[in-house]
Nucleic acid binder design. Structure first.
Length: 831
RNA sequence: GCGGACGUGGCGGAAUGGUAGACGCGCCGGGUUUAGGUCCCGGUCCCUUCGGGGGUGGAGGUUCGAAUCCUCUCGUCCGCACCA
């Protein structure tokens, strides 16, 4: 495309200028009011793709806009540089993950610079830097001291493809790994956990005050999954302790203690620890068969079914044992069934078929009795109607009869507490965070195992524990560290005896849970960050990232911030790290996300020689609401070309020879001024509410008007045209920074650069129009439009409306029944 | 199954309960160059007897007035999913 300005030269010039003049570096003692703008730090996968471009265009707009508002804007950047792709590449090519990763970082940085996105690179943080690893390990040890990190044997999610353990959050609903897509299997391993559940309630309640997208908050609420109910013991028949043997009971969790009188059987999960003891000889074969099948089946087969709850066969077997219903005192059969999950509650339930759909299905299948404890509404088909879980009056429930459900719950719990059989209990879906990974390219867990002293933390003075470089990358299912004698064998810090190092590394979500704090003060070599510096910048004023991090990263970071405060590393910090969150939409192509793995990337480099970084940025801002997904189609190229054409028109407008006219301002001059100020008002409002597509549209409207104005026959007023042309550049400064800065410099060679200017303000008096269009409706239908004074009174507006020939016509002689006047915009005459 | 979001021209999308379709892409017509896939101007929701009439997935409702609020319904997308 032929251009009137040399895009690449102009963009390069300004990128160098901003770098050399340190325009976007900010010191911690900067006296201006602070603003912390942050895009989620990326995994360095190489050159930026369109998703990055969109993301960093929004971020850069905010940085430049807030700077023009007079703020000290903290705009740091870093890399989530530990992770699987580098290690997989190492297994494939033999190159060390560090080399691979650092090469990708160089590529990504250069892409961002080419886009014109501005950061304070002095503050760059990389997860794999020894300095970052060190503080990661220090933090881990502090959490350990505080009891927030612990080691436990657990049934864990093992991904055969990634050859590592996954957190629950990394397993998709269909039981596959979110990263590799392999079916995840269960393994029993000794692993490290972080006690995020200690903060479950606080993490839930804190959501209310956050300016986050509602759907992200909803996702986190669902993930935490708080439910109130009670736990109670079901004493096993014949094992109440009266025969001298230890008493035995099955503990269950329920949210419906009020339905206790309807409990006609109980169920334990196939993995339940007491199960073996509860199986009678006659039932053993049947139960073993069921348990074996449950163990070999994948999560997907067992818990997912197209029809949802109740659609799956309720496979189960009688254990042979009975437990006592504490409400009725009667024995009820104890089953094992795979619809009860060991991972939730106590792994055992009291089954009430009348009020629970799943229990109903199971009871039907196994011929178990059904006793209603809530009267279903009129017309409920009592036999075929199935479980009724709605509101109603208690029946068949002894001392609970006649109460509503809420009251009955309270009384049922009081009864259980009095009998010493149970108590109120809040249960969460949220599990503790498993952070052990059997991988090399991550932060080593700084623990030494001594035969004498067990798991001993590496003394802080000896941190960081770094992985050795001379390792072999083989797909063994264990970290290469486990085969490296030099790393593995060490001495116990406590007794000096021979000991072995932990060879697992931490989940990379640990790294990303506090990097935003390190950004506040990455220069400190005596602490992860200086609490004073962190207090200066935190919380992040505007956090920007993809919706894919709605649960994992954002929940972990919220937990970490609280934990760091509570272990004393971050005194006085706000407990919520991200005040405002924006999740931008994905770029899709052909129905799926545009990504390297899908092979449907459209490289940004393609456009730098034609429309430039500015043209591409303008496109991403203009094409739709930032929160919405965007479909990249055949039409997209033409829209991008259109953005390039706009910048060329802008160039011609700003550099045009003007036919300046002397004398008083004309009506046309005043109208231009008015539109300039209206546009400033509109764009400022658009920026504040993330409506960048309309900000671009408003700016284009003004440019269209000015183009007509400077070509109008009468010539232009010098002051009016100067103000207008300057304002356009100021408004475009955050959106298309290079071309705007260049044109500004040409117009004002001796003034301060564009991006050092203040954001323009509008004159409210000017914004108020000299005339507005008064819409006249008859019965809500548009009949006439009148140009009126904006200060018009209701009476005058009504009079004008009724005098309108078109209104008289439409009324056809009928008398108006009512006149609704909303001056100065509208009058509605009702007959 | 539960929860959430969203349905507006050929397309992306605008519209504090008050002129539906801003801005742009595409398309149509005209002009300048005429080598243009450049640039400029005009048009572009549908119907129309040129007075108007209809129109925001569908059906109702609230209101002087509804794309916007409410109810039902259809469809698309997202999240969760045997969570006791």
């Amino acid at each position: 495309m032929a251009r009137e300005y040399d895009v690449e030269a102009v963009e390069r010039k300004w990128q160098e200028r901003w770098r050399d003049e340190e325009t976007y570096e900010v010191d911690n003692d900067d006296p201006r009011p602070s603003f912390y703008a942050l895009c989620m730090y990326p995994y360095p996968s190489g050159a930026a793709h369109q998703g990055h471009v969109r993301n960093y265009t929004f971020g850069d707009l905010i940085v430049r806009y807030q700077t023009m508002l007079g703020k000290a804007v903290l705009s740091p950047f870093g890399f989530d540089s530990f992770g699987l792709p580098a290690e997989n590449a190492a297994i494939k090519t033999g190159a060390h993950p560090r080399e691979f990763t650092e090469a990708r970082i160089v590529e990504l940085k250069s892409s961002l610079t080419r886009l014109g996105a501005m950061y304070d690179w002095r503050r760059e943080v990389r997860s794999h830097d020894p300095s970052y690893v060190r503080w990661n390990q220090v933090i881990f040890e502090r959490l350990l001291e505080a009891g927030l990190a612990y080691r436990s044997n657990a049934l864990v999610n093992w991904c055969p493809g990634c050859q590592t353990v996954l957190a629950n959050e990394q397993v998709l609903a269909d039981g596959t790994c979110e990263r590799s897509g392999d079916v995840v299997i269960k393994r029993d391993l000794e692993q490290w956990f972080l006690r995020i559940t200690a903060y479950a309630d606080e993490l839930l309640e804190g959501l209310d005050a956050l300016e986050w997208p509602e759907r992200v908050k909803t996702m986190q609420r669902n993930w935490i999954g708080r439910s109130e109910g009670c736990e109670l013991d079901l004493v096993v028949e014949g094992r109440d302790g009266s025969d001298g043997r230890a008493p035995l009971a099955v503990r269950v969790f329920t949210t419906r203690p009020d339905t206790g009188f309807g409990m006609t059987y109980a169920v334990v999960a196939p993995e339940h620890p007491l199960l073996d003891e509860l199986i009678t000889d006659s039932q053993r074969a049947e139960v073993d068969d069921l348990v074996a099948r449950a163990a070999t089946e994948t999560e997907i087969e067992r818990t997912s079914s197209s029809g949802g709850p109740g659609a799956l066969d309720k496979r189960g077997a009688f254990t042979g044992s009975f437990v006592r219903n504490p409400f009725t005192g009667s024995p009820i059969p104890l089953y094992v069934a795979d619809y009860v999950l060991m991972g939730y509650g106590t792994g055992a339930i009291m089954a009430v078929p009348a009020e629970d759909e799943r229990d109903w299905a199971f009871a039907q299948l196994h011929g178990l009795p059904i006793v209603r404890t809530v009267a279903p509404p009129e017309g409920w088909d009592d036999s075929g109607g199935g479980a009724y879980s709605g509101e109603g009056t208690k029946i068949n429930s002894g001392f609970l009869d006649g109460f509503g459900i809420a009251e009955a719950k309270v009384r049922a719990i009081e009864f259980l507490e009095a009998a010493g059989l149970g108590e109120r209990k809040v249960n969460y879906r949220l599990r503790d965070w498993l952070i052990s990974r059997q991988r090399f390219w991550g932060c080593p867990i700084p623990i030494i195992y001594c035969p004498e002293h067990g798991a001993v933390p590496v003394p802080e003075a000896d941190l960081p524990v770094l992985a050795p470089d001379d390792v072999e990358f083989l797909p063994t299912g264990q970290s290469p560290l486990a085969h490296h004698a030099g790393f593995l064998h060490t001495t116990c810090p406590t007794c000096g005896g021979p000991a072995e190092r932990e060879t697992d590394t931490m989940d990379t979500f640990v790294d990303s849970s506090w990097y935003f704090l390190r950004f506040c003060d990455p220069f400190d070599s005596s602490a992860p960050f200086d609490p004073g510096a962190a207090r200066r910048w935190m919380p992040v004023d505007q956090y920007i990232g993809g919706i894919e991090h709605a649960i994992l990263h954002l929940l972990y970071a919220r937990f970490f911030t609280r934990a760091l405060i509570d272990v004393g590393l971050a005194p006085g910090l706000p407990r919520e790290p991200f005040h405002r969150l924006f999740t931008q939409g994905m770029i899709r192509m052909g129905g799926s996300k545009m990504s390297k793995s899908k092979g449907n990337l459209v490289a940004p480099e393609k456009y730098y020689g034609t429309v430039g970084a500015d043209g591409l940025r303008l496109f991403h801002l203009f094409v739709g609401p930032p929160a919405d997904d965007f479909d990249w189609t055949d039409q997209t190229e033409e829209v991008i070309d259109g953005c390039g054409r706009f910048l060329e028109r802008l160039w011609r407008l700003e550099t045009a020879e003007l036919a300046v006219r002397d004398g008083a301002a004309t009506e046309a001059d005043t109208e231009v001024r008015r539109e300039v100020h209206r546009t400033i008002e509109a764009v400022t409002g658009d920026f504040e509410r993330w409506s960048y597509n309309t900000a671009v549209a408003h700016t284009r409207e003004l440019v269209n008007l000015l183009t007509r104005y400077i070509h109008s026959d009468g010539g232009v007023n010098a002051a009016v045209v100067q103000e207008a042309l300057d304002s356009v550049l100021l408004l475009l400064a955050p959106m298309t920074p290079h071309v705007a800065a260049e044109l500004w410099e040409r117009r004002h060679p001796d003034a301060a650069a564009l991006h050092a200017q203040r954001w323009p303000t509008f004159d409210p008096a000017l914004v108020r129009a000299s005339t507005v269009t008064l819409v006249i409706q008859v019965n809500g239908k548009l009949r006439d439009r009148l140009e009126v004074d904006p200060g018009i009174e209701e009476g005058e507006a009504t009079a004008l409306a009724l005098a309108s020939a078109k209104v008289v016509d439409a009324l056809g002689g009928a008398a108006p029944k009512r006149v609704v006047a909303r001056p100065p915009r509208l009058v509605n005459v009702v007959v």
